[in-house]
Amino acid sequence: MSWGGERLGSLVGRAWRGSARFRAGVAMSLLILALAAVGPLVAPHPSEGMGQVPPDAAERAGRPPSLEFPMGTDSLGRDVLSRVLMGARLALVQVGTVVALSLAVGLLVGVLAAYYRGLVEAALTYATEVFLALPAIVVALALRLALGQGFHTLVLSLILSWWPWYARASFVYARSVVEMDYVLLARLAGVPDRIILLRHVLRNVVQPVLVQAITDLGSVLLEASAINFLGLGLEPDAPDWGIIAQNGFKYVTSMPWISLFPGLFILLTALGFSLVGDALREGLDPRLRRRWRLWF
């Protein structure tokens, strides 16, 4: 796949050589990916991680971090380390689903609006603007009331508020592609719309939007954990970092470690994705590459 005239490998390679922040971001992202892969295997108390209260809850509740419980235990005696480890996979599944589906919807809408113009463009632009005005957290409230608590509510509310950003971005890129001569020539040559859209337009639009999506993985996690923290998303026992932080909210003075560690992991994940995405975007944008100092 061609990425703006250069291969993905060379883009990543340049970012790797040129930017310490990119290397740090890759390290953080890989760490979280590794935790998501092996978390359930290495968690010392997997069932507690999934929210089950241990039988000896009373005597284990609220222990500070120690060798036995490196991140302490929560108010119900569950091992916070296990809950945080089980949370890595859940966090990535949440943001992955949201970003992938939002990308699909957004790209489709943006490209169609740019290609067909007229009424289609007007209708899709209007829809984009309407959803753009809806923050995920308020949509989450409405869906929480209509559909109840759970994964579907959380993911749906985030998708509804994220796809318009991709629609808007891909519309801008697609519009400039659609006006290129080769698209006109393909049309005149009788190439079917479907082929033009997929092979000529979409292909050239995907790349910058995809780079933006990497940064957004972090932003989506921040928003998802805020929704979960308010209790509008997943069930109260799910090993989500926002929910674990919520469990510790009431005890924030007596047991600060319950909220401390999941928050650190949210920060680490969001930071990692953000650093990777930003470095790639700087690499793609030649204007941002200039680093020399002439007069100041």
Binding site: L222, S225, A226, A245, S259, I266, L267, A270, S274
Partner: peptide, 8 residues
Amino acid sequence: LANTPTFW
């Protein structure tokens, strides 16, 4: 700063 969870 831009990536710190605000509730946290």
